[in-house]
């Protein structure tokens, strides 16, 4: 089986890889590029643990083929910090204890960041519906929603 050569940009840096035609972007990120921050909870688009941003759009990396990354930009959890500084969402997740086991956390953070880029001042309901594609089995979502709304407030103030 011949492999496909893909040239792409991941978290702002040029990247190349070879992948099989049927390989998902999630497999490529995790198994070929060592970016294991994106998680596989289902592989069928139902849990959001694999959330990444593709050309500015929030997608499930398990539903995208690796080959589709050709010429595009991919943003993952590993690109969320700048140097040592945590993104306000990351900080608020810690302060609000919005994670218990933490397996869903990368997906929630990537999805929440995408929300706040579109809707800097979401209502609780908007946040809940936007994040309805991300499953968390530990927290009951309460502290996650609080962390997202608090981060949004802080980011608005900073502007």
């Amino acid at each position: 089986m011949s492999r496909i050569h893909v040239t792409t940009t991941i978290n702002g840096e040029a990247a190349e890889f070879l992948c099989d035609a049927g390989e998902t972007l999630l497999d490529v990120l995790r198994d070929r590029l060592g970016l294991t921050g994106s998680k596989e909870g289902c592989g069928t688009g139902d849990c959001g643990a694999c959330s990444v941003v593709l050309d500015g759009r929030l997608v499930c990396a398990c539903l995208v083929l690796g080959a589709e990354a050709e010429g595009r930009t991919v943003g993952t959890i590993e690109g969320m910090t700048t140097g040592e500084a945590l993104h306000p969402l990351q900080r608020k997740f810690l302060e609000h204890a919005a994670l218990q086991c933490g397996i869903c956390t990368p997906g929630f953070l990537v999805a929440a960041k995408a929300l706040l880029e579109r809707t800097p001042d979401p209502t609780e309901e908007e946040a809940r519906y936007w994040l309805a594609g991300n499953l968390c089995r530990c927290t009951g979502y309460d502290k996650i929603i609080r962390a997202v709304l608090d981060a949004a407030a802080e980011m608005r103030e900073a502007h």
Partner: peptide
């Protein structure tokens, strides 16, 4: 399983 939009605080 319950999702965020199913629930209140």
């Amino acid at each position: 399983i319950p999702v965020a939009s199913d629930l209140p605080m």
